[in-house]
Design a protein around this nucleic acid. Structure first.
Lengths: 164, 164
DNA sequence: TTACCTCTTGTTATATTATAACATATCATG
DNA sequence: CATGATATGTTATAATATAACAAGAGGTAA
């Protein structure tokens, strides 16, 4: 299995160079196809988010962007992040006020995020069942559903093992 | 059906005096039983959250508390809200950075929140199916789940009708 | 090519949300 | 009624996020 489509890669050992690289390549391809501009700041922002499988706050991203020679004021980070989220290359993790790279860019998906309290790892997991259950509930309510956030807090396998 | 246990009351017409009153009574009872102190600020904060079926930001709550003669500095509101959330009398809606009264206090529940983009109404709906699906996924991942946030954005029945 | 338009970047300034730290007051209880 | 724990109020500040505008980069069509 190719690591970019490995669900919950955050919780599995994998070749992270390959994982990062393939997501980045895919983002480049998708941008070209969609006619949107994956500019240097935006691409670098995505690279930063891809470095580790965790969510970064906008100011953490900003700090790293500044080190790479980009602007050092908040809008620089917020704008790049907004672009990535808007085009499906990143997700905002509301629970953390932070951002994580999307591990399935371009694929229609209704992800749930599993967030480890202990180490901060964030795994993105396709959860069609959850979305289906919510669709059913929405229909019953007469509610027109547009977006869904599903975030699960707890302890990841590695941190459970560590504690034992 | 008693309005306090009416799921998604926010989206249904109901006797709101009764709805508010019964949740408040229930909160009083539960506090007494649990030996926790439902003080005036805390109770008033809950009343404020119960006025409408929508989420209020901490500063909105604070403003109203101040009008009722309580302190006017942020910690006053944040502390009361923290108490309510901690004891299951309110929920934080992460998507909105805001707080909503819990409509099923004391009952074990894994609520999903349906949030109307148009009018701000927030409905709390028991979603055992969703929780079950997430438990299954968590087990598969070896993830120990502690807390879950499920928030659905969209348009409520009333606003759909309005638009038509 | 220039002229023009749009989108992007960078900056300053400020808004919004949230917490730390400490003094005073209240409450249960021994 | 003394005491320790809990709650309230205050000042100050931290952390997160956006508005508004000037300058630059990129496309496109005369």
């Amino acid at each position: 299995m190719h690591s970019a489509s490995n669900p919950a890669a955050a919780f599995r050992s994998h070749d992270h160079e390959d994982c990062l690289g393939s997501v980045l390549n895919r983002a480049d391809t998708l941008s070209r196809e969609a006619g949107i501009r994956m500019t240097p700041v935006r691409r670098r922002t995505l690279e930063i988010l891809l470095e580790e499988h965790r969510a970064l706050g906008a100011y953490e991203v900003l700090e790293r962007l500044a080190k790479h020679g980009f602007g050092s004021q908040p809008p620089v980070a917020y704008r790049a992040l907004e672009f990535l989220v808007e085009h499906g290359f990143a997700h905002k993790i509301r629970r953390l006020n932070a951002f994580a790279a999307c591990m399935q860019p371009g694929e229609a998906h209704a992800p749930a995020f599993f967030i480890c309290d202990a180490c901060g790892a964030v795994a993105e997991v396709p959860e069609e069942d959850v979305r289906d259950a919510l669709e059913v509930a929405a229909d019953r309510l007469g509610f027109r559903m547009s977006r869904v956030n599903v975030e699960v807090l707890g302890t990841c396998p590695a941190c459970i093992a560590e504690a034992a």
